[in-house]
Design a protein around this nucleic acid. Structure first.
Lengths: 179, 179
DNA sequence: TCAGCAAAGTCCATAAAATGGATTCAGCAG
DNA sequence: CTGCTGAATCCATTTTATGGACTTTGCTGA
């Protein structure tokens, strides 16, 4: 976890890179950030990963303004990360809950990778939350693996950019001072 | 990648969870989000992962307001994710650049996990950016692994919460209507 | 020598969001 | 009918973002 990932075929490593090789519009990382990349959305999703599903539970768990929560849940439903459905407890009227969809549950992996990063660089000695194997009890972590499911070292990895996705000519830069 | 991760020892899975088991203050995931969890910071870090280091390069790459970029870079330096240092090109005066620190470069793993998620749920057929092994040329991905570096299936994983980190009594909820 | 330029900012007025408190709405219990 | 509760919405205030112009520094080429 020491080296920066490097591009395939790049030799001179000291010449600075001036532009991202993939445009924002085509980059699935920035597209992800567009959907979930703000503080409250991320925190809502964290609570949701823990199993929370109800409006007031999110509100109390995070102490989030109700207007913001309302807006964020709506957009998470719209993007397919959460579902909106009725539930009914015994002797209660029907209410609404927001469970994660499969798409939303799949965020567990990036979130765990992020947690691992926080554990290493922000945490103290104790790790509040860890993963372990049900069968062996051994510690589980997130890592790069090859096709056979073997962990690989970062030094053996290179980034490949699809030529078709390479940043295009760049819509003409607007000059710094216009008037 | 189908099931939600489950807590160790939890049997009744249908009773809704009402609170996150780890408080925001102690959760290394929410601490991470506090540092990097806003749209512009995430995008700056994406560009930085691609190798960008200079103020105007970030500005042009992302079309980010200069004030915001200035503020974000300062806080990334303060938290130790980026470094601030002088560089000098031949025949130019000394200028400033913002390379990622080791801590910042380590964000590559969560970012790749996030990219993978985007590839699956947001992307089209084509993947603009992929990882491969330098030695075998095989595809590299991000996954859960055990201590021996073997990929493990999600169904075999359970979440363990350190009892010491369990959410404490919860500072008394303020009533809904005060006056 | 000095005008021009480029990188790395700051300043400022306007626009957009977040915040937090009160209010609304629906339907079950008593 | 009244109270209560979960799920919102409304509104005034504060905070933050936005985008354009302006500033600073020290090089280069004329």
């Amino acid at each position: 976890m020491n080296l920066q990932l490097r591009y395939a075929g790049v030799m001179k490593d000291d010449a600075p890179i001036r532009r991202s090789p993939v445009s924002l519009a085509e980059c699935n990382l920035s597209r992800s950030f567009e959907l979930i990349g703000d503080r409250w959305t991320l925190l809502i999703l964290r609570s949701a990963q823990h199993g929370l599903r109800r409006f007031d539970d999110f509100q109390a768990d995070l102490d989030i303004p109700r207007t913001v929560l309302s807006a964020r849940l709506a957009s998470l439903v719209e993007t397919g990360i959460m579902d909106k459905r009725a539930y009914r407890e015994v002797g209660q009227r029907a209410r609404v809950e927001y469970p994660l969809t499969k798409m939303g549950r799949a965020l567990a992996l990036p979130f765990m990778a992020m947690t691992q990063w926080g554990d290493k660089y922000l945490g103290g000695k104790k790790l509040p939350l860890t993963l372990r194997s049900r069968t062996t009890g051994g510690k589980i972590s997130v890592a790069y693996v090859d096709e056979k499911g073997r962990a690989v070292d970062m030094t053996d990895i290179e980034i490949v950019i699809d030529p078709a996705a390479r940043r295009r000519a760049a819509k003409k830069r607007k000059p710094r001072t216009s008037a």
